[in-house]
Nucleic acid binder design. Structure first.
Lengths: 224, 224
DNA sequence: GTCTATATTTAGATAGAC
DNA sequence: GTCTATCTAAATATAGAC
């Protein structure tokens, strides 16, 4: 699985959200209080946005009364922040892995990172990535999230530049190409907003090929 | 200006928003009541989102009292709807033009449409396209906007398919490629959210080249 | 960990004068 | 076309019992 066409099936697979603070429950199933709040809030925030979602709606979805939410979270914003961080963290960790894995070619690692991100955004029951698009992410409480995302964007830039230096990519500008690839990946969020029934595998393949073409990369052994 | 590298400098240039119902003011300047409301609301909706923006904020930005808004609009939602339609309509009209202009090659017309949309999204004082990303666009009141956007997406699909049929593009699937190009274009909105100081011309060039590469188009006379 | 009861604030919208 | 005054509803959050 050291090629970018592998489905990135390592430890952190693009799975469910939530539980960033406590370690994953040993027998990961029942989803206790706090996690059920996060799951319900995720769905509502995605469908209605943050400001339009009331704490009563969240509590109703969980099956508890509104004030009970404040046992789990200090306020409404804390729920959003935890969702944002939990969603962005896997990508950032994958990016760190790719930056550290200096045995493989930059292009290979860039493509694998893109693949990981696309699958993360394209899978899961709700379009969780659309949380990134909420205007509220600009609030001070969401700094941590924005830092994670900046680190991810920086990794894209580093890998694109390295690919250029290695003669694997043929583009005018590294930073601009990295930004374009980044928006190409996050464009999955937009596509999922339009058509909720997307095929994650298909999208991942399409974007991988598009990325390779945008980079002007010479088709390698297992690249079409 | 019959080539896609022209800046689409026809009647409907990607200019300011507003005034969809009444014809553009003869000497387009003072921006009277209603238009000032739209302009202020646009800025606030873009920065804070719809639900988080209060009618009092809008009125304060205009310099009037909150109830005075209801002379111009029946309710808050109507302001958003008018902004959405006014923003999306130019793209739809450009799409219709490109579909009708059967003298030129499909690829040329597709590229020009992409260029038009990118410039529209990349220019203007605020990231007006981010209105598209608001969760409230899913509300019933915004049907007209969603129809406009569907028609635009359909035009992309038609032009991509025609380009394939004409042997100008080398891709697996027309519809999937069209959707990918569409999200590539709207990705401009995401880039502008991250870096507010973007160079519209540069972005337009970058996305044009990226689109050509994604399409697997053979570089023509004035395409790099 | 969840409840009832409630405080506090603020939202969108209307009535009617000028 | 804008104002003052105000209604009504609903929001987040707290206090404290169980």
């Amino acid at each position: 699985m050291n090629t970018h066409s592998a489905t990135a099936a390592d430890g952190r697979s693009p799975a469910t959200v939530a539980s960033p603070d406590r370690r994953a429950r040993p027998h990961g199933k029942p989803a206790v209080g706090r996690d059920r709040v996060l799951a319900s809030a995720a769905r509502l925030f995605v469908e209605q946005g943050y400001a339009a979602t009331t704490t009563r709606q969240i509590s109703a979805a969980v099956g508890i009364k509104q004030p009970s939410l404040y046992y789990h979270f200090p306020n409404k914003a804390a729920i959003l922040v935890e969702l944002l961080v939990a969603t962005a963290e896997p990508s950032m960790l994958a990016a760190r892995d790719m930056l550290a894995d200096r045995d493989r070619s930059p292009l290979d690692r860039l493509i694998e990172l893109i693949d990981f991100d696309v699958r993360l955004l394209a899978s899961g029951p709700w379009n969780i990535g659309s949380l990134y698009l909420l205007p509220e992410t600009a609030a001070p409480e969401c700094v941590r999230f924005r830092e994670l995302r900046s680190e991810l964007a920086a990794a894209y830039e580093t890998l694109v530049s390295a690919a250029i230096a290695a003669g694997e990519a043929n583009v005018e500008s590294g930073p601009r190409t990295a930004a374009l690839l980044f928006s190409l990946v996050e464009g999955v969020i937009l596509r999922r907003n339009d058509a909720s029934d997307i095929d994650a595998e298909q999208i991942a393949r399409d974007i991988q090929q598009a990325a390779i073409r945008v980079l002007g990369a010479t088709p390698g052994r297992d690249r079409a």
